[in-house]
Design a protein around this nucleic acid. Structure first.
Lengths: 150, 150
DNA sequence: TGCGGTTACTTGCGATATGCAAGTGATCGT
DNA sequence: ACGATCACTTGCATATCGCAAGTAACCGCA
């Protein structure tokens, strides 16, 4: 597991994987615009490392050769249980803006959530499983913008 | 979950938690001697952050006041499922030295493993659940020592 | 009561990684 | 042919890491 942490031992790698898995992000631009505020050089570096580690693959689109699509590999998809547990933990302990009902339901149907996630991956269905609850764009606080301190 | 990664988004934090949970490490010295090769300043920093985050508590021993015991909180223990899944993932994909049989068995008895882990925590039983499979001290390679490159 | 050893840390400092802003080159639509 | 788009680089300031050495509180023992 120490080896795993040499891959994921930073703030961005797992986040990138999660965003691919549950939010359907696939291109460099997707990540830039995702609201995660990741610097472009870091993003490039993390995508490279993840491909080197065999967790994602790079496939450039035939219809538009500027475009590169990143896709999780089998190995990457096998991280789904880890991410699910981390999501549940975060929701329970860290005040992510995720509605309790949604989390409770995921917690009681772990297997179903994982199955559905995998099914979408197999079919290349990129519609997000989860929206962005956390950090910004919360429903019930007035400003919604300009929260930068942490 | 991005919030979780602000806590665990580094190479050591999760490792410290894991070592407390499954190897029964509790003191500063335990970690220094654990073979993880973590620098003392980093260790001090991570232990402080983890206590600040409410994941471990610091309790100085009454019989020997030099000694400080770190212990996982409830919140820290709730990371057990995450760590278990990460362990399983690593064993499957990253050639840790863990025997397949052990992993298979854990995978099929997730709930039992988690129950046992929690029981030991409640009873303050610190005998390790898992030894160190990974990295050093592998049984079947001749040298065993002097492996520093990565 | 003094003294060496133990425990849990700091401190200093060079090396590495991060984050921002700006730039580059290939490709596309018109 | 030209401006826009996409996927990155590059330069540079700042933050974090990691090693080695040092320190302060405390313990056991003479």
């Amino acid at each position: 597991m120490s080896i795993s942490l040499e891959i994921f031992g930073d703030r961005w790698s797992l986040l990138v994987v999660r965003d691919m898995m549950v939010r359907g992000l696939a291109t460099f631009k997707d990540f830039q615009e995702s609201g995660e505020d990741i610097a472009t050089n870091i993003l490039a570096d993390r995508l490279e490392r993840l491909t080197d580690a065999g967790i994602v693959t790079r496939e450039s689109e035939v219809s538009d050769r500027r475009r590169v699509n990143y896709r999780l590999t089998e190995k990457g998809m096998d991280l789904a249980p880890v991410l699910l547990e981390l999501l549940i933990w975060g929701a329970r302990h860290e005040a992510t803006g995720a509605p309790c009902a949604v989390i409770d339901q995921m917690e009681q149907n772990r297997a179903a959530v994982l199955d559905e996630t995998r099914r979408r991956w197999e079919v290349r269905d990129r519609t997000p499983i989860l929206p962005r609850f956390d950090e910004a764009a919360r429903p019930r606080n007035a400003t919604g913008r300009a929260r930068r301190s942490h």
